[in-house]
Structures are given as C-alpha cells and as structure tokens.
C-alpha cells in the first residue's frame, strides 16, 4: 500500500478525513519552503503536495501564480522540487508532487518517476494531464509504484468520472468548483454531489479541494469526503507574514486549525 493510501486509511480508522496541504517548492525560498512543510506536517497535515512552480499556471489564481513567479525568479528548478519532496518525505508524511505537465515531460517521464520514487515520494498530481494523454505516464508511474492522481470537476459527466478514476490511484482529487485556485472563500454546494458521483464509480478515497481556507469548512467537507485539500490559504499565510519565522508560525497555526477541523466532521 502506498504512503498516500496508508494516510487515507489511517484517517478512516480514526473516523476523520485526511488533511492534504499544498505549498510550492522554493517559495519564499528553498530552505524556508522546507521549514514550512515541516511545520505543516508537525501540526497535523497527513499528505503533502509539493508544488512545482511553472511559468504558465493556468489553473491557478493570483496567490499561487505569484508564489510560482517568485520561486522561479529565484531560480527554483525541478531538482530543487525533488529536494523539497525528499525533505517532506523525511518528515514521515505521504508526499506527492503537484505539477503542470510540461516540466515533467521536459525532465523525462521515467527520469522524473525514478527520482521521485528514490527520494521517498509517493505520487504525482497532474492538473492539466488528461487520462487520454497519459499512456506513457501510466507506464512510468506503474513501474515505480507511484500514485497517479487526476482531477474531476463539477462539470464532469458520470462517463467522464468513470474514465478519470480508472486511471487514478492513491486518491481522486475533486475540484469543488468551476474556477481557479484561491479566488473564492467558499466551497460550492456542488462538492457533495460530485463526491457522491465519484463514489459511485470507485472505492478510492475522494479528497475535495479549491476554496477551502479555514477549520469550519474543513469540518464541513470532512462530513462527506475522505480528504480535505488546502493550498492557496497556506500560500496566502506565507505571503502575508512579515518574515520567514512568522510565515512558519502562521502555516503551523493554519494547519492546526484545519487538522482540528477534519476531526470535527460537523454537519
């Protein structure tokens, strides 16, 4: 069982949802991005998504896009991302990389999968790769037992959901709303229905992301999903902190609030 699968199954045994936290590697700088992830895990994040900063992040709103710009302008490379993934895996948390497709294709599919597996990474989320284009990626990830995580959206038809989940492993990423990251402070009412539609097609855990920023929302999503994904809220906490130490503290505090939320399972 992969580290991701274990994290979800442990959460299920504890009768709670798993908490999935996203931060981009190299933001605000390489060393601090590692400290931020360590703080996130110490405060209760079960699965870490290490973001690979990309020049054209068309699924991301300004919060994450600006963080990616900053990380890239400091020279963050795919090698650095793998270093952050290694540090994340050393904390004991299940670690996945979230990346747009071109950087992985450029690095080489097998080479990327090899390197990630070697540093203890557990899987990869690819927001702009559709299963139709993923034959080679399926082979590369299967050969190294890496989880392949694709997204479903409120607009996905039942047939489409069946196609996507059959290509997935680890968990299914359910985008709660039609939009980009970090632009809304609420989770749409569609999310619960979407999770139900996904469950009709698979036994994989379903985690909900987009628009989750505080503990009450986490509790409410934990009422119907197996995992709660938070990204922009963490990045915003870093962006608003006056210095790196404050950023580490703010990320830890937010993670603690969210971790309490996924254990409340309100509504």
């Amino acid at each position: 069982m992969s580290a991701v699968a274990q994290a979800f199954s442990r959460a299920r045994e504890e009768n709670r949802a798993a908490l999935v936290g996203y931060l981009p590697a190299g933001y605000p700088d390489l060393a601090t991005s590692i400290r931020l992830i360590e703080a996130m895990v110490a405060a209760g994040v079960d699965v870490v998504e290490v973001g690979l900063p990309y020049s054209d992040p068309l699924m991301d709103g300004p919060v994450i896009a600006q963080a990616a710009d900053r990380a890239l302008s400091q020279g963050t490379t795919t090698d650095d991302v793998l270093e952050v993934a290694a540090a994340s895996a050393r904390t004991g948390a299940a670690t996945v990389v979230m990346s747009y497709w071109n950087p992985i294709e450029r690095f080489g599919l097998d080479r990327f999968a090899d390197r990630l597996a070697a540093v203890g990474g557990s899987g990869v989320i690819t927001p702009d790769l559709t299963p139709e284009e993923a034959d080679a990626w399926q082979a590369s990830t299967d050969a190294r037992s890496l989880d392949r995580i694709f997204l479903v959206a409120p607009s996905s038809t039942p047939e489409r959901i069946a196609t996507v989940v059959s290509a997935c492993s680890g968990f299914v990423y359910a985008a709660s709303l039609m939009g980009v990251t970090g632009t809304r402070d609420s989770v749409s009412g569609d999310a619960e229905g979407l999770v139900a539609r996904v469950r009709a097609e698979t036994n994989l855990p379903v985690a909900v992301g987009l628009g989750v920023s505080h503990g009450d929302q986490a509790a409410s999503i934990a009422g119907f999903a197996d995992g709660v994904i938070v990204g922009s809220a963490f990045v915003r906490a870093v962006a608003q902190a006056p210095d790196n130490d404050a950023a580490v503290e703010a990320v830890g505090a937010l993670a603690a609030e969210l971790a309490a939320g996924v254990r409340r399972r309100s509504e």
């Binding site: 068309l58 699924m59 497709w101 927001p127 702009d128 790769l129 559709t130 139709e132 284009e133 694709f150 997204l151 479903v152 959206a153 409120p154 607009s155 996905s156 038809t157 489409r160 996507v164 985008a175 039609m178 939009g179």
Partner: peptide, 12 residues
C-alpha cells in the same frame, strides 16, 4: 496537438 487542460474544461 491533443488536450492538456484542467478537467473542468473537458466538458466544454
């Protein structure tokens, strides 16, 4: 060619 897009756009 092909389609490399967020899933939310597949339906459209």
């Amino acid at each position: 060619g092909g389609r490399f897009v967020p899933e939310a756009l597949t339906h459209a």
